[in-house]
Design a protein around this nucleic acid. Structure first.
Length: 615
RNA sequence: GGGGUUGUAGCUCAGUUGGUUAGAGCAUCCGCCUGUCACGUGGAAGGCCGCGGGUUCGAGUCCCGUCAACCCCGCCA
């Protein structure tokens, strides 16, 4: 018996990776292990493409060399796990396979060990086969992950994170872990809760992000912290949203906004380069929130292509169209010129109209096509010559283009035109295949919540206002009541926050934090979080800020989304090893699942679900 | 919570206007083949047409419901 426990000369310590075998090994006797990727039985000779993590190499079983062994090899099937000892041989010139990295050589088998027999795979694993449905791929994820695109995703993901770790280590950051079992601070997303057995009726929450802990690490004098942090948010899923996801979480002390932005520009450039071989701007452009909304209708604009929105608020007066005039008075009127969009059929436009009405609450979708002879549309009769000329001038529209109009409440106008811009640019192939990053800055600090009639944090309540605007916050917080003027001023207060946007995807965001407890308390007051409530929810942070807190700030990047972009995958699930379905279930393990009554009793928990679902 | 797409052999799909025994490719099984490389080749087996109702002489096909996966809106500090 060998050390491996197999009755042969097999010695795993001698194993070579399949892809490493090369012409230089000619004549060597080597050991390779892996999965049977393909086999080609020719009768007297049988070829096996042996696959391991590194790649594929051809193994030959030849009747002329060992008829017994050939017989044994004839029973091999796809995905059997085998070990082969054999002699490396140069292939004949006409037998070289240029498509294979190891195509110059082959391994003539002298020993074959079947390490594990495989049932036929329920999903095709060959890169040339049609991909199985995602449902099956998720059920048999351990097989799906053997496939080349998935292996690549795991490898690149590792490479990306490795680069991030090395980079931040080189910049003096400490990787520090923060708790997963946490205090619930219901602000923003819904928490995942964990009942406490030792504290009847009480619950931990899984972290939506390590926000408060990373700030307290600054109070604790860590100065430069990072973490590849798992975050949890119990919200509905999307193509780019999973209930648990990974962030590069960063926090620094004694820095200003420029320092943070500059460091992260270098970090992302380095990681994109090493993981994807992609070069992104070392100095991404900066766009204010205001400009992003006005020009793209979106706070995470895809700036790889222009197609900027056109302001038509004052233009409406030139027309005789009541709908436009009304919108310009009570809301906003803007247009989107789509180059080449005149090719859209009437049905295309009808479909788009239905879509923006259904999804973005638009009341309709007005349009004009531009041709050599003039404007074509149902609404041209409302557009006098002067209005038509001015429209062409402002939008820069040329023959063959189409102009869409949106006149409504501001948020509806922005949402509608932004969605149209992205959808049509993609449909008409107007988006170049590049990577373009930008910072979005000068976000408002507060938003107005129509439901509760109160202020809301745009970012999170620990975000600092820009220094020039801090006095407005303090004055309003100290005032006996908020006057309408004050409220207006508050909604204009800019935050010291920044979002990193790559190809129209928000991949990171952060801010300078409030490090003074009085300003923090002022913000809570304005957010209608009472002293008592603030104390019970974030008391430990507030307390921390009173014991000597350094000026600090940070950022967090969504690892999964960056990988999605870098690998050009359609879904976040394709860059994660074990993702969940849109309903948050794991098709492989069956999670979530009912638990024993006993477990619930121990946790002082009683389910009020009508009836446990049978899956 | 709302809108949409899909569900037929192990897998990917086709299936006409509702009409005989539901097909193809790949995989599987049994053969043949000494240089293939997505090998080739001969044969065989393989079906709860997602599930439950309904309409009909007759349903994979039409209607209602339901389940699942996916996409979008709401939601996601």
């Amino acid at each position: 018996m060998s050390q491996t426990g197999f009755p042969s000369a097999l010695d795993f310590s001698k194993r070579r990776e399949c892809n490493s075998v090369a012409a230089a090994d000619n004549g060597q006797v080597i050991t390779v292990c892996g999965w049977v990727y393909r086999y080609r039985d020719q009768g007297g000779v049988l070829f096996v493409d042996l696959r391991d993590r590194s790649g594929v190499v051809q193994v030959v079983f030849d009747m002329a060399i060992d008829a017994e062994l050939l017989k044994k090899a004839e029973s091999l099937r796809g995905e059997d796990v085998i070990a082969v000892i054999g002699k490396v041989r140069l292939r004949d010139k006409n037998a070289v396979n240029a498509k294979l990295a190891t195509g110059e050589i082959e391994i003539v088998a002298t020993t074959l060990e079947l390490l594990s027999k495989a049932k036929p795979s329920p999903i095709p694993l060959d890169e040339h086969d049609q991909e199985a449905s995602e449902e099956l791929r998720l059920e048999y994820r351990f097989l799906d992950l053997r496939r080349k695109p998935m292996q690549e995703a795991l490898r690149v993901r590792h490479e990306f994170i490795r680069t991030v770790r090395n980079f931040l280590d080189g910049e003096g950051f400490w990787e520090i872990e923060t708790p997963i079992l946490n205090k619930s601070t219901p602000e923003g997303a819904r928490d995942f809760l964990v009942p406490s057995r030792l504290n009847a009726g009480e619950f931990y929450a899984l972290p939506q992000s390590p926000q408060i802990f990373k700030q307290l690490l600054m109070v604790a004098g860590s100065e430069r912290y990072y973490q590849i942090a798992r975050c949890f948010r119990d919200e509905d899923l999307r193509r780019d949203r999973q209930p648990e996801f990974t962030q590069i979480d960063i926090e620094m002390s004694f820095i200003d906004k420029e320092m943070i932005m500059a460091l992260n520009e270098r970090l992302i450039a380095a990681a994109m380069q090493s993981a994807f071989g992609v070069t992104v701007d070392a100095k991404p452009e900066r766009i204010t929130y205001h400009d992003a909304m006005e020009l793209y209708g979106n706070d995470k604009p895809d700036t790889r292509f222009a197609m900027q929105l056109t302001e038509l608020g004052d233009w409406a007066a030139l027309t005789e169209f009541k709908v436009f005039k009304g919108a310009a008075e009570t809301g906003r009127l803007k247009a989107l010129c789509v180059p080449g969009g005149a090719s859209l059929s009437r049905k295309d436009i009808d479909d788009l109209t239905q879509w923006v009405m259904q999804d973005y609450k638009a009341k309709g979708l007005a349009w004009v096509k531009v041709s050599e002879t003039g404007l074509e549309s149902l609404i041209t009769k409302f557009l006098p010559e002067a209005a038509q000329q001015e429209l062409l001038k402002r939008t820069g529209a040329k023959a063959g283009d189409i102009i869409f109009f949106a006149g409504d409440r501001a948020d509806i106008v922005f949402a509608t035109l932004s969605a149209l811009r992205l959808k049509l640019a993609e449909k008409l192939n107007l988006i170049p295949d590049t990577y373009k990053a930008s910072w979005v800055v000068d976000f408002p600090l507060f938003d107005w919540d129509h439901e509760t009639e109160s202020l809301l944090s745009v970012h999170h309540p620990f975000t600092a206002p820009v220094p020039e605007d801090a006095h407005i916050v303090k004055a309003a917080a100290n005032a006996a009541c908020i006057t309408p003027e004050m409220q207006k001023a508050l909604l204009k207060v800019r935050s010291n926050a920044y979002d990193f946007v790559l190809n129209g995807v928000e991949i990171g965001g952060g801010s300078l934090r409030i490090h003074a407890s009085d300003l923090q308390q002022a913000i809570f007051r304005l957010l209608k979080i009472s002293d008592a409530e603030a104390e019970s929810r974030f008391g430990f942070l507030l307390k921390g800020l009173t014991f000597g807190a350094p000026p600090h700030g940070g950022i967090a990047f969504g690892v999964d989304r960056v990988l999605m972009l870098g690998l050009k995958r359609a879904s976040i699930r394709d860059v994660m090893a074990f993702p969940k379905t849109q309903k948050g279930t794991c098709l492989m393990s069956g999670a979530p699942s009912p638990v024993d009554e006993k477990q619930l009793r121990e946790l002082y928990v009683k389910s009020t679900a009508p009836v446990a679902k049978v899956r």
